[in-house]
């Protein structure tokens, strides 16, 4: 049985005659390890996440120069310049890059929702074993290489592929006035980029939608039907409004990374109208213009702040609801 003496006395009493290891344990028990649990990941993120971003901010107001380092700051107040940001508005390539990114991201998000919603609903409505299998089949591509899945589509979209030829044949048969030549140019178009993004990010749309739809109480549907609603009305009046948090989460999880996407437009997109992620990378790797590349990054983040905040708001609301 534990001694009933007041805690501090007993702790000291034990320490005095115990070996070193126990003293360390005693130190840990005095809540020091709690601080360590918070402090270590906290410091890591401050060091490797916040500090790098502050450096980007600092470089974005610097001036490019030839030499090492390839950036220089004024040595008097305000130390920096907004010339780089002004430059972004002057050269077409930047704001067209932004517009192009937003356009592609919006279209891709829309199609991902259009495909993802009925799929998520279908999975949520499937019975036990089927549901598990279907869910696993959605998660499976999510775990396998993103790059290789994009690569698989490149194989299909190419002008000589069976898919392209088959599609050309079908279209030429039914809509001959649309098709010219023996193939459809699909690679290196915005269509290919949208398709690549929808394909890659579809699991991110389906999983939060599924999580929301699966939790819905099906007796609500039955109650609505009992009160005279037809299936379509039940969907419109009950299921759809209740799944809004899932829709927002899924849409943001597709929209945000799609806007800054680099790999898919590089591999499948047109060279002449790059998306902003590609512009940023080219500015950094090809032109070695750090200040402009940094200001592109800052401006990109500024565009995405609103969707990120929407996402966090819904997540936090969800977490609060979950806690209750």
């Amino acid at each position: 049985m534990a001694a009933l003496a007041p805690a501090p006395t007993s702790a000291q009493g034990e320490e005095s005659h115990l070996p070193k290891a126990h003293t360390f344990r005693a130190w840990l028990d005095r809540e020091a390890w709690r601080q360590a649990i918070i402090a270590i990941p906290y410091l890591w993120l401050l060091f490797f996440f916040i500090a790098p971003f502050l450096i980007v901010l600092a470089i974005s107001i610097g001036t490019a120069q030839v030499g090492i380092p390839p950036v220089i700051w004024k040595d008097s107040f305000p130390f920096g310049t907004f010339d780089n940001y002004a430059f972004l508005t002057q050269d077409d390539i930047y704001w067209q890059g932004y517009l192009n990114s937003l356009k592609v991201a919006v279209i891709a998000t829309f199609f991902a929702l259009l495909i993802g919603y009925p799929m998520a609903l279908g999975i949520a409505r499937a019975s036990g074993t089927w549901r598990n299998v279907l869910l696993l089949l959605v998660i499976l591509p999510f775990w396998t290489s993103f790059l290789l899945r994009v690569y698989a589509w490149i194989g299909l979209l190419g002008n000589n592929s069976w898919f392209n030829k088959g599609l050309t044949w079908i279209l030429a048969t039914f809509f001959p006035f649309w098709v010219e030549g023996d193939h459809i140019q699909m690679m290196n178009t915005n269509f290919a980029v949208v398709l690549g993004i929808v394909y890659s990010y579809l699991p991110f749309m389906i999983l939060p939608l599924y999580a929301t739809l699966e939790k819905l109480d099906r007796t609500l549907d039955e109650a609505a039907m009992d009160l005279g609603s037809r299936p379509w009305q039940v969907f419109k009046d009950i299921t759809l409004p209740l799944s809004v948090p899932g829709i927002v989460a899924g849409a943001m999880l597709v929209f945000i990374p799609a806007t800054g996407e680099y790999v898919i437009p590089s591999l499948m997109g047109r060279g002449d109208s790059p998306m902003i992620g590609r512009v940023l990378a080219d500015e950094f790797f090809q032109n070695r213009d750090w200040p402009v590349a940094s200001s592109v990054a800052v401006a990109l983040l500024a565009i995405l702040v609103i969707p990120i905040m929407i996402y966090n708001f819904f997540q936090a609301r969800d977490a609060r609801a979950g806690a209750k």
Partner: peptide, 9 residues
């Protein structure tokens, strides 16, 4: 949610 290009640069 941070775009990878931003984290990368």
């Amino acid at each position: 949610v941070m775009p990878e290009v931003i984290t990368g640069i």
